[in-house]
Every structure is written in C-alpha cells, then in structure tokens.
Design a protein around this nucleic acid. Structure first.
Length: 529
RNA sequence: GGGCCAGUAGCUCAGCGGUAGAGCAGGAGACUCUUAAUCUCUUGGUCGUGGGUUCGAAUCCCUCCUGGCUCACCA
C-alpha cells in the first residue's frame, strides 16, 4: 500500500468516484464508420485499465462495449469512395461489406477488424451491437420515454448547446421505408404508438433523402434515438456508472454535456462520471487515419507487442496529449521507458511506474518481468549477421533464458526488424557497402588496414578478432596520448566498410562479411592514394 | 468565440507546497577488448511572463504570451 508515493496514481483517483457496495458498469463504444487509427485504442485501453483497477479495489464491476452500428453513414471521407455516395445516410449495418469474408456488412467489417485486436491486447469487455438492442426492442422503453419528453429535450439542446431544432421535432431517426436512409428523416407527432416522418432531400448536407412521407411505430428497430438520447438510453439500459471519453465529446457545450443534462432532467438520475482523455498528435498534428504511415490501429498492433501498445496508452496521463510518430527514435525510447517501468515494478509494485507496467500487461495478474535485452542492442545485433541473438543474450545474462525471456527476446527481434525496415533513422542503420567508399584516411590508418589483412581468414572467433584488432593498432602505432589504441584505428575499419566512422563491434562486423570482399577492400584502401 | 492540454537540463519527460530530478545525449575515468559494450563519476536549468497567497511555490490563485488539440452541423 503505502510506498512513499502518496501522489495518487490516475487510475486510483477514479476509484474514488465510484460508490462502494453497489454494482458498477464501465462503458465504452465505437462507431464503425471506417478504419480506426491507433489513437482509437486509447479509450478502450484506458477503460480496461480502469476496469481492472476497479476490480482490484473490490468493486463489483462489468465492462460493456457497444458498437454503434445503427448510426447513419455520414463520413465525408467515405463519401468520396467508389460506390459509397449511394449509401450516405443509411445505417452502417445496412451498407455492403468491403470484404464479406471479414464482415457481413460495412459496420460489421470495420467493427470486426477493430474488435479483433481487443483480445490480444487483454481487453475483454462484453460486446453489444446497437442493431441487436434496437431490433430486439430492448430500448423501446427508453425510446418511449424520450419521445414523451421531446419538448424538454429540445429545450436542453437549445440551452446547453444552442442548437435550434424545429418545433415538433422528435429526437428519433426513423429508417425510411422507401430508401432505407436513417440520417435524412425528420420525425414528428408521437401519439404514443407511432410517429410521422418525412425523408427530406435537404435535411443534412452529407446525404439526400428521397422525399417519402409516412407513419410508423418507432420501435423494434424501425428507428434509432439520436446520438445524445441514445447515449442516455444506453446508460439506463446497462446501468452505466463510469464512462471515460475523448475530449471531442466531453468538451463544454459538447455532446456529453447535452446527454448529461438530458439524463438528469428526463431520467432524473446523475450521469456517470469519467475522465476526458486527450488525443494523439502525429508529428505535432492531429492523427488522421486516412493518411500517414503506421497510423492505423490494425497495423501498429500487428507489429508492436501488446504490452507495448498498452504501455504507450497508459504511461501518459489520459488528460495529456500524446505525441506518437512511429518513425524515428520513438520506438527505442518507448522500449527503454517500458524497461524502466519493469524495473520500477520489480523495485516497488505499487509505485506509479510499477502500476503502469502491471496495467500494461495482457494478463491482469502478470509474472514478474525477467531478463531482457535492450531494444537498441537487439537492433544492432540484427545488423551483424554473425550474431545469434539467443546465444548472445544468454552470454549477456550469464545463464539460460527462461521460456518467457526467450519469447520476449523473439518479440523484440521481430519488432527491431520491423523498426529497422520501416522507421529507423539512418544513424541507427548500417550496411556493408558493396563498393569502396570515397573516404579520407590518414597514412597510419592505411597502414593499419593493411596490417589487419592477415587476420582475415585466420582468426574465426569474433572475440579473438576483436583482441587482434586491438593489438594490431598498437603495433602500427595508432595510439592516443595514454598509449592506448586511438579511435582512429577502429574508425578506419568503419569508414572502409560502412562509410562512416562508427559502427558495431569491429570483430563481429568483420567476421560477418565475405572474406574475399574484406581482403579486397583492405588491399585497396591500405595502399597509399 | 467556448473548452482542454502543454511550455522544467541539448532531447523526451517526471516532480505538483518544503533547499531543482530521471533516461538519453555531452564530458571524464575504469575494465591490460576501441564502440551505439559494461561499470563509475560528472557538466548542464534564475522550472514561458508578470502579479498574488504563504514562513516557504516549478508546485496553489489571477493576468498575459507561445504552441497544440477540440467543440460550436452530425455522430
């Protein structure tokens, strides 16, 4: 418990918001209107971390995740795609799937792709689809309540958000019986059983209604509540007591505030509390799913180990914005920090960083972290063909790796491979040059390169090679002020083969290159120019 | 225009009322194997600005500046 860290960890702070001795429900949701950027995982991972923390604090809690697949297609970026224009305004679950082998319809396709990531990340909520809730009539009671209080709700929209809906407006969207659109209909005149509606051509900018007028019962899936009212209906239906969210929704005068007011006035209940999380930025700019490398959640999760994805989301307080650009040194930094968190956990499980490490694990009850190799070291190893990571790691540990450690190593190897290929800056990469580079060498350096030629093909152990290189430098007289071999000696090797003055340990490097090439190169550069 | 977040060592950030911290980078040294290897030590900041509260503020309050995001239609 008390460990000297009295400043409360953010997740522990949230525990105080929940009343003990009664059931609790944490909720999160996603509208499956397209590919989800990596930033879309921040909410689910935060919610899951809180869910775990609540449970760990002996609260009776469920985690509910809803898929808002009855919402209308209104995404501008989608409208420009081939074949999509005709579907604008239809419920997401009534639009054809881009790939039927993945999902049965548009919503199912995108939801499936996204949700498929959850289990691997250790996120295990109950999933509910809005289409099922509506069609089964599970929300009919709430729909009726909303319709009977339409005037009150209209006033709240006006007061809280300054949104003026026409008189007689009802906060439901009927699915047009003629064209199937749900985003274009205006409903009026609830008589306790049915509503009148009109599918208006110019009701919204992003879709064109067909002009049909009709009357039907807005239950059993014939209609859906508008966003704010649907939110309340879900809180009511599931008994939600905690819900965090992005700041796009939780801003003053924003959507959540409208829903909160409606819940208070119409349902006569307090809305659930919840953190407002900040967004990701990508290179200082807002992350866009459509463009930008590595921005899609599916892609990052395929490459990053799950605990690293969780750690990325949890190490920064939810209320702070998170800069994430997979390119460059982002990943090595993240991995170093992750390792530090593991050390913190070993030192004190209840330290903030220790807690963050634990919440980052896929299992809520993880084993203690074991021996691991620093990420940048693994990345270097990969670029020296003669190094076998497993053997090298065992040498470094001084003992056999456990199964878990071996798995961790392999994951790091895969991650480093992807990083080198896609994101690493040039400084982190080296490559043996096929052709002799045009480099400046001193006469001593040239003598040195000539001197080590004899080692090639005769010394086969990398460690021994390293020693011999060292000795050769002494013999040639490449010494620094203290009589030790100077940096110039090794720089000559790096320049000769990599074209830059530094690189991986020279003994290992030389042995990993074809001996013929090494001899030729040494001959060529060993001569006076 | 409303809201949120940030501005602390070269870089990334932690600290959030009690004599300025970490990692990396930089510097020095050790290991009779240089390094992007290990270990030890170390340089470096008047904590964005101006006020206020306090015995005492990076830390609380107010002003302002800078940068970013977000809502002002729908979801």
């Amino acid at each position: 418990m008390s460990s000297g860290h009295e400043a409360a960890f953010w997740a522990d702070e949230e525990v105080k918001l929940l009343q003990p001795g009664r059931p609790h429900v944490v909720r999160d949701s996603k509208t499956p209107s397209g590919p989800v950027p990596i930033s879309g995982l921040r909410g689910p991972i935060i919610s899951d971390a809180l869910f775990r923390t609540f449970k760990a604090n002996a609260l009776d809690v469920r985690f509910v995740y809803t898929i808002d697949d009855y919402d209308p297609m209104d995404s501008q970026s989608m409208k420009e795609r081939a074949g999509m224009a005709a579907h604008m305004g239809k419920p997401l679950c009534m639009i054809p799937s881009p790939d039927p082998s993945v999902g049965t319809d548009f919503a199912d396709y995108h939801a499936t792709r996204f949700i498929a990531l959850f289990a691997g990340l250790g996120i295990t909520p109950e999933f509910h689809r809005m289409r099922d809730l509506y069609r089964s009539g599970a929300l009919d009671k709430q729909i009726d309540l909303v319709l009977r209080n339409a005037e009150t709700i209209r006033a709240i929209h006006k007061r809280v958000a300054n949104v003026d809906h026409p008189e007689g407006w009802l906060p439901v969207a009927v699915i047009c019986e003629n064209c199937g659109r749900i985003g274009t209909t205006l409903a009026t005149d609830y008589d306790g059983t049915t509503v009148a509606y009109e599918c208006k051509p110019d009701y919204v900018e992003w879709a064109k209604g067909c002009g049909h007028k009709g009357r039907l019962a807005p239950f059993k899936g014939n209609a859906k509540l508008l966003w704010n009212e649907q939110w309340c209906a879900q809180w009511d239906h599931f008994g939600v007591t905690y819900e965090e969210g992005g700041k796009d929704l939780l801003t003053a005068g924003g959507s959540r505030e409208r829903s909160n007011e409606i819940y208070r006035e119409v349902w006569k209940r307090d809305p659930p509390p919840g953190l407002q999380h900040e967004f990701f930025t990508f290179g200082g700019k807002k992350m866009a799913s459509s463009k930008g490398i590595g921005a899609e959640a599916v892609e990052i999760v395929a490459i990053y180990p799950p605990e690293v994805v969780r750690f990325l989301m949890l190490r920064t307080h939810p209320k702070r914005h998170l800069e994430f650009d997979p390119a460059g040194m982002t990943l090595p930094r993240l991995m170093d920090e992750y390792d530090r968190a593991a050390d913190a956990y070993r030192g004190d499980e209840e330290s903030d960083l220790g807690k963050t490490w634990r919440l980052s694990q896929v299992s809520p009850t993880p084993d203690a972290p074991g021996f691991r190799i620093r990420f940048t070291t693994v990345a270097s190893w990969l670029q020296i063909p003669s190094i076998k990571p497993e053997a090298e790691a065992e040498k470094e540990k001084g003992a056999r790796l456990t199964d878990a450690e071996l798995r961790d190593l392999h994951r790091r190897v895969e991650l480093a491979r992807a990083w080198l290929e896609r994101w690493a800056p040039d400084e982190a990469k080296f490559e043996v040059l096929e052709r002799t580079p045009d480099v400046e060498l001193t006469p001593e350096q040239r003598r040195y390169l000539s001197a080590i030629r004899a080692l090639i093909g005769t010394v086969h152990d990398a460690g021994e090679m390293q020693n011999q290189l060292y000795e050769a430098a002494k013999q040639v007289g490449l010494l620094d002020a203290k009589g030790n071999p100077s940096q110039d000696a090794f720089a000559a090797i790096y320049l000769a083969f990599l074209g830059k003055p530094n690189g991986p340990r020279a003994g290992w490097l030389l042995l990993s290159i074809d001996p013929e090439l090494v001899r030729r190169r040494l001959d060529e550069l060993g001569r006076a120019p």
